[in-house]
Structure formats: structure tokens, C-alpha cells
Simulated assay, not measured.
Amino acid sequence: MTPADLSRTVLHAVHRAVAENALRAPVPARVRVERTRPGGSGDYACAVALQLAGDAGLPALEVARILRERVAAEPGIGRVEITGPGFLSFTLDAPGDSDRAVLDAVREQGSAYGHGGALRDEVLQFHHAREVRAAVTADAVRRLVVSQGARVRISCGEAGEMGAAGEAEWGLLGVTVDAYGTPPVTSPADPSAPLIPVRPVPAGATARELLERLGPDATRWGLLRPASHDRAPLGDELLVQGEANPLFLVRYAYARTRALTRGAAALGFTPATDAAPYESSVRPLLDLLADHPRVLLAAARHRAPDRVARQLEAVAHAFFDFHDSCPPLPSGDEKPSAAHRSRLALAEAAGTVLAGGLSLLGISAPTHL
């Protein structure tokens, strides 16, 4: 990572902090980073927190903490420290170290990669109408915010789909509700937790109709992939077995990663994150995997499961580009090499992220398609 790269990374962190309402200050046109002076900490230092503190109405140390959270996991950065009155000091990874760290984290954390505790102090009360898209959206939002440490309670109104049959159909869609009826603005159990309405554009169909025509996975994807303020297309295109169907693309990419693992086992080799440096052509996939924790946190904060769906589509496209340009399995009489072991590690990490993201959307990830 060059000083220019680091400057752009810090500026991107400022943009994210402002977009997520963690920081309320004008975004500077550029951020200056400088080599650390003799006796200082790290490789580079930046005074942007002191620059923003006045406009943000926060101590510089608090601004530095907000930015550190958004920079520390970026590829190429090994460590971020806060020094003095609010300077950010950066220690950069050796080339390749950040990529290995991402893949090691995915392997160690599995489907929980990207989960965290940023919302652990929040108690959230969601309420939705008795309508299938609202119910599925609230359920997906619950999964997202819980993955970031929040505690959640969901209530549902009385209008719309009623009866035991409707309850069973919602259960087939993975939806659970904690209470029925319109609750007070704040919960008696926790008066500090205000009621948060979940109001996507209605589906225009009942759970029964959608389940009979599409099944649970395609129904959930069709309801969650569009932003909540957009109409949800729920046609038969959701069942097409082709790469033009994003749901099929994502699940096929996952199934392909599992097939690669089986193929490697048959050839007698396993993945290794330190086997060989990665080709430059795999950079888009590596960057998406490194960015996955940030995407999940942003989706949780904005109550936007559609962001996870778009992330999974991007990972699937990048995986197939990588797979075609850098095959993880040897061909013909070729022997497995260090490059194949490192590519297999990347493929398995992509599969883990795809499966974990689908799980947060309440959608299954079959190993065969």
C-alpha cells in the first residue's frame, strides 16, 4: 500500500462514517498522511481526526476511534493506533500478509465471518404490518442486527393475513414473531427502545401464493433483493436455472466452491493460505471478501438486507472470473502446485462468505445444483 492508497483508504473511512451517521462533519477533499517521525509509532501518521473534531462537535480522540474502526480491517493495514491528542498511526502489512489474514479469518470464523459486536449496546423494537414482505424483511433485519450484537424484539399488527394456516406458511418462510397487536411507542420491558416500523412496498401476494409458485428460497430472495422502497419482482424468472438469475448465480457459485474442495480431495491436496502469492487478477474477489464485514455492519445499521444480496452477487461474479482465469484445480497431467493450494483457499473462502450471507437472508445454500 502506497501513501496515496493509504490517504484514499482514510478518506473512504471518513465518507463511511459520515454516511452511517457516526460522524457529522464535512468530508475533506483529501486526507494527508506522512511518514512517522523518528521515535514515533507505526509507518505513517494522519491528523484528520484533529481536523474534523471541531465541526463534528466531538473530542479528537473520539473521532479517531470512529475512524480507526473503519480503517483497521482494510487490506494492507496491519495495525492502527491512536496516539497523542488524536493522531492515527498506521503500521502496514508486508505484501501478501493482509490477504492471508482475510482468508485465515474466514477459515477460522466460518459462516460467522463478518459478525461482530458493534451494535451490542442496542435494544431494538421492530413492528410490521401483517403482510408477507414486511414480515420477511423484519426477519432478515433481525438476523442482520443480531449478527452485530443487538438484542431484538419483533411485533406484528393484526390486519391482513390471518389464521393458523397463515402462521404455518410464515413459518415455512422462516418468519417468527414475538408479539401481535400494535404495541406502545416504547416497550414496557425497555422504555428506552423506541418502536421502529418496517414498511417495505407490499408484495401484492400472500405467503401461500408465493410459496406455491416459488418455494421458500426464491420467495425470500425475491422479497429481499430489491430495496424496501422498490417494488419486488416476483415472477417465474426467480426459478430460472441460469446465470441471468442472481439467486441461481449465487447458489451455483457456492455449489461450485464445494465441488472444488471435493475435487482437490480426490487429487490429494488441501488449501493453504501461505502457499503462493496471488495473481493480480484475483484482486477483485480478495477485496470483496475483505470488505464483507463492513457490508454486513452497514446493512445492519441501515436495516437493508438488499445490501447483502448485492454483495453476494458481486462475490459470485468475482468468483467465476477468478475461477476462469486462475483454475484452482490442475488440468490434464498437471500436478497440484502451491498456486493451486492458494487458489483453493480463496475459492473456499468465497464459498464460506456466500453461504454465510445466504444464511443471514434466511436462504439455503445447497452443495449440489
Score class of each variant (00 low, 15 high):
residue 78 G to T: 05
residue 185 V to E: 08
residue 152 V to T: 14
residue 185 V to I: 03
residue 150 A to C: 15
residue 185 V to C: 02
residue 106 V to N: 15
residue 140 A to P: 07
residue 91 T to Y: 04
residue 104 D to Y: 09
residue 119 L to F: 15
residue 121 D to A: 15
residue 186 T to Q: 04
residue 147 S to N: 15
residue 147 S to I: 12
residue 152 V to N: 03
residue 171 G to N: 08
residue 133 R to D: 01
residue 146 V to A: 13
residue 154 I to C: 03
residue 97 D to F: 11
residue 165 A to V: 14
residue 75 P to N: 14
residue 169 E to W: 00
residue 134 A to G: 03
residue 121 D to C: 11
residue 192 S to L: 05
residue 133 R to W: 00
residue 126 F to Q: 04
residue 79 R to N: 06
residue 75 P to G: 13
residue 158 E to N: 01
residue 127 H to D: 03
residue 79 R to I: 04
residue 152 V to Y: 10
residue 171 G to D: 09
residue 77 I to F: 07
residue 197 P to R: 01
residue 189 A to C: 01
residue 146 V to K: 15
residue 144 L to H: 15
residue 133 R to H: 01
residue 87 F to L: 14
residue 122 E to P: 09
residue 174 G to T: 10
residue 180 Y to H: 10
residue 158 E to S: 02
residue 82 I to E: 02
residue 189 A to L: 01
residue 188 P to L: 01
residue 114 G to T: 13
residue 142 R to A: 10
residue 168 A to S: 06
residue 160 G to H: 00
residue 112 A to E: 14
residue 176 T to Q: 15
residue 75 P to R: 13
residue 85 P to F: 08
residue 181 G to L: 04
residue 92 L to C: 02
residue 190 D to Y: 09
residue 158 E to M: 02
residue 196 I to S: 15
residue 123 V to D: 05
residue 171 G to L: 12
residue 126 F to L: 15
residue 87 F to M: 09
residue 110 G to P: 10
residue 162 M to H: 05
residue 181 G to T: 03
residue 87 F to P: 02
residue 192 S to Q: 13
residue 180 Y to E: 05
residue 108 E to Y: 14
residue 192 S to N: 14
residue 190 D to K: 04
residue 83 T to K: 12
residue 147 S to C: 12
residue 103 L to D: 03
residue 152 V to S: 05
residue 161 E to Q: 08
residue 113 Y to Q: 10
residue 97 D to T: 11
residue 114 G to D: 13
residue 169 E to R: 08
residue 152 V to P: 07
residue 178 D to I: 00
residue 79 R to T: 04
residue 155 S to H: 00
residue 91 T to G: 03
residue 153 R to S: 09
residue 83 T to S: 11
residue 161 E to S: 01
residue 75 P to F: 06
residue 111 S to Y: 06
residue 163 G to Y: 05
residue 181 G to K: 01
residue 168 A to Y: 07
residue 142 R to I: 07
residue 177 V to I: 11
residue 142 R to Y: 13
